[in-house]
């Protein structure tokens, strides 16, 4: 096992990244043009209810970017505590259709401060969690489970178009999910047929030790590079057999200095500590993107065996198995 394997490279963006650029369409169009082919994936964090900086809806932006890109995986964020899991599930499934299997969902568990803003923006509503950490955590888990079950609620061959029996769909292959959480219940099935990947990739950004349950529910976990990384990676690696999430190191690229050698060294350290990929975070994206794509990315490729983007569906690029449908009868 000493053979060096290649690692994945992605970018962590948020859907308000256009900053002061008034031509939002021009900004995003040129950005996705730069990243498509240079990186394996991008994440689009949603700035839901961030006062004065809430920007665009991340999942919709992802659906706009998908038809104007070819290869890049698009992992769109949603603050599941404050939106309807049903709408999120169908919107990510749609992204998977539009992008031909390049879609992912970034589960956003907002911090206490952001959660209070988000709670004020939707109001106090039955079926939504109380704004305290325990309620928000357990609701995020429940909502993630609902999103995933809805993706499976149609079997792949549910649409039969059988003229002889006059049936378009085989009702036996649609399934209620009937999920009950502490705060809400969702019956299903989805209105959107099972997406191309079956289960679009589910990602989560690690912040504290309390995130273990959420990390287990994800396929991919982003963990900040640095002192704590090795411990978290080991903990996640110790989970279960074969179903452990992939661990990606988050690397901050400081806006003032662009020391390529230093960043490559930091990336190498993360890889040595078990990172299966690197996600670059650019705080001043607008000013940084050109130099990062033109200098840092080639350096990472040369020194770290960052692969050229692999193409194909996003799950397979992360080395995830084809998703089995939990409702389909065993073949």
């Amino acid at each position: 096992m000493t053979q060096k394997s290649t690692i994945l490279l992605g970018f962590g963006l948020h859907a308000n990244a256009h900053g002061d650029d008034l031509d939002w369409r021009g900004f995003w169009n040129s950005l996705v043009g730069r990243l498509d082919g240079a990186a394996e994936f991008l994440t689009l964090e949603d700035r839901f209810a961030d006062p004065g900086r809430d920007g665009l809806d991340a999942i919709l932006l992802a659906n706009w970017l998908a038809p104007r890109s070819r290869d890049i995986g698009i992992i769109a964020g949603a603050p599941l505590n404050f939106v309807e899991p049903f709408h999120v599930s169908t919107a990510i499934a749609t992204l998977d259709y539009v992008s031909a299997g390049r879609a992912g969902l970034l589960i956003q568990r907002l911090d206490q401060h952001r959660s209070r803003d988000a709670g004020r923006a939707i109001g106090t509503l039955k079926g939504f969690p109380a704004v305290d950490p325990l309620s928000l955590d357990s609701d995020t888990l429940a909502a993630t489970e609902v999103v995933r079950r809805l993706w499976d609620s149609w079997e792949d061959d549910a649409v039969i178009r059988d003229v002889a029996s006059q049936r378009y769909v085989d009702g036996e292959k649609l399934h209620n999910i009937d999920y009950q959480s502490a705060d809400f219940r969702v019956l299903g099935p989805s209105i959107t047929p099972r997406p191309p990947q079956g289960q679009p990739l589910v990602a989560f950004g690690w912040t504290t030790e309390g995130d273990l349950a959420l990390a287990r529910a994800a396929d991919v976990v982003f963990v900040p590079a640095g002192t704590g990384f090795a411990g978290v990676a080991a903990k996640l690696r110790g989970e279960g057999q074969g179903t452990r999430p992939k661990v990606i190191a988050d690397l901050q690229v400081r806006p003032d200095v662009a020391d390529v050698a230093e960043l490559v060294a930091a990336a190498q350290t993360s890889v040595a500590q078990g990172a299966e990929g690197i996600r670059l975070i650019l705080p001043a994206l607008y000013r940084q993107i050109a130099s990062v794509v033109d200098a840092l990315v080639p350096a990472l490729r040369a020194d770290l065996l960052v692969a050229q983007p692999l193409g194909g569906d996003l799950r397979s690029r992360f080395g995830l198995p084809a998703a089995r449908n939990r409702y389909a009868a065993a073949a």
Partner: peptide, 11 residues
């Protein structure tokens, strides 16, 4: 069966 309305319109 249909896509999410806002998502497909944005696409």
């Amino acid at each position: 069966g249909r896509p999410n309305t806002l998502a497909i319109l944005t696409a």
